[in-house]
C-alpha cells in the first residue's frame, strides 16, 4: 500500500499557531506512516493534553486523545490487550516529563513496543506559556514573571535510566531527519523515546529556530546499536558525555534490541497469551457464558 502523505489528513483544521513546530512533526509523521505502509485501522496514536495532544485528530489513523500525563498507561493498555495494533504516544514536555513522569519511567521498566514522541518546546503552550520541566534554569520566557528557578531535565537521560531501548532526538523543522527517526522508532520492537525539539513561536522566545541551529548538531559516525553488556555500558557512558556537551546531539542515540519487549515477557508467564491475546479471546458463546468447568477451574474453593 503506497499512499502519498496527503492522504493521511482527516480534514480537521490543525489549530496550532502559525509556525508551530507541531506542523513539522505532523508532516514528518504522515510521511513516516506513508513510507512504512501503515494499515490505518491497525495504527493508534495516543496523546496527552495540550497542543501536542491534538495531533491524533489531524492524522487519519485511529486516535485516542487522553488525559494530562496519562497517554502512556492508555497506550500500554491498548497495546497489551491487542498487540496486533501499532501504538505510538504523542505528548508534550510538560505532559510526559511533568505530570506524567511516573508513567514514562514505568514504561521503561516494561519495554512495551511503543514509541513515545516528546514534543519539547520548553513551555506549557495552551495554558499560555508557563515553564515546563525542560526549560533551563534562569530562562525567562515571555509569560514568566521571573526567571525559571527550576533546573531542566533531559528526557534522553531519563529514558536511559528507565530502561528504554530506543532513544533519539530530532528537530521539528527537519522533516527528513525527523521522519527517519520516526520510522526507525516505530519499527523498533520495544519502548522508545523520540525527543523532538520544537520552537513555540508564541511563548518561547528563547528556543527559537536560530537558537536551535546554534545549540544542536547532527550525530555523525555514531552507531546506536549495542550487541552485549560491555558495549551497552560503553554506549551509556558515551551518551551521558554527549548529553552533557554544550550542544545537543540530534539523531538516534541508542537502539538496543537485546531486551525482551513487554509482550514477550507476558507470554513467558501467561502461556496462553502468545497465541491468544486478550483481544483474540472469545468471552461468550453467542451470548452465553463460555463452558467453564467450575470445579476444574476453581477446585480449591469447593467444599
Amino acid at each position: 500500500m503506497s499512499e502519498t502523505s496527503t492522504d493521511w489528513n482527516t480534514g480537521v483544521w490543525p489549530d496550532w499557531c502559525p509556525g508551530c513546530g507541531n506542523f513539522g512533526i505532523f508532516t514528518a509523521l504522515k510521511g513516516a506512516l506513508s513510507e512504512l505502509g501503515i494499515d490505518r485501522k491497525k495504527f493508534v496514536i495516543v496523546s496527552g493534553i495540550g497542543c501536542s495532544g491534538k495531533i491524533p485528530h489531524f492524522v487519519n489513523v485511529s486516535g485516542v486523545h487522553t488525559l494530562h500525563g496519562r497517554a502512556i498507561p492508555f497506550a500500554t493498555g491498548i497495546k497489551t490487550a491487542n498487540p496486533e495494533l501499532k501504538v505510538i504516544v504523542h505528548g508534550g514536555d510538560g505532559d510526559l516529563l511533568g505530570i506524567g513522569m511516573g508513567h514514562l519511567v514505568a514504561m521503561g521498566r516494561r519495554n512495551p513496543d511503543i514509541l513515545v514522541v516528546v514534543h519539547n518546546n520548553g513551555v506549557y503552550g495552551l495554558t499560555k506559556g508557563q515553564a515546563s520541566p525542560t526549560l533551563q534554569l534562569g530562562n525567562k520566557t515571555k509569560s514568566l514573571a521571573f526567571p525559571n528557578i527550576n533546573s531542566a531535565i533531559n528526557p534522553i537521560l531519563i529514558g536511559m535510566a528507565s530502561g528504554y531501548t530506543f532513544l533519539a532526538r530530532s528537530y521539528a523543522y527537519n522533516i527528513e531527519h525527523l521522519k527517519g527517526c520516526l520510522k526507525q522508532g516505530i519499527s523498533h520492537n520495544g519502548a522508545g523515546i523520540l525527543e523532538v525539539i520544537q520552537p513555540c513561536p508564541t511563548w518561547n522566545n528563547i528556543v527559537t529556530m536560530d537558537w536551535i541551529e546554534k545549540n544542536t548538531y547532527y550525530l555523525e559516525n555514531w552507531d546506536p546499536n549495542v550487541k552485549d553488556d560491555e558495549e551497552a555500558l560503553e554506549k551509556a557512558n558515551a551518551i551521558v558525555a554527549l548529553e552533557h556537551g554544550k550542544k545537543k546531539p540530534l539523531g538516534i542515540l541508542l537502539e538496543d534490541g537485546r531486551k525482551e519487549p513487554f509482550g514477550k515477557r507476558i507470554a513467558s508467564v501467561y502461556k496462553y497469551y502468545a497465541t491468544n491475546t486478550p483481544a483474540m479471546q472469545r468471552v461468550d458463546d453467542r451470548g452465553a457464558a463460555l463452558p467453564v468447568d467450575l470445579e476444574k477451574t476453581f477446585e480449591r474453593f469447593f467444599v
Binding site: T66, R70, P73, A75, G77, Y272
Partner: peptide, 25 residues
C-alpha cells in the same frame, strides 16, 4: 478456553487508564 491477563500498574491512575485502554481494544 480463556486466560485473563493481570497487570500491576505503577499507580491507580495508570491502573484505570490501562483498563480503559484494554476496553477500547
Amino acid at each position: 478456553i480463556g486466560s485473563p491477563l493481570v497487570i500491576q500498574a505503577e499507580d491507580e491512575i495508570a491502573a484505570i487508564c490501562m483498563a480503559i485502554g484494554g476496553a477500547l481494544a
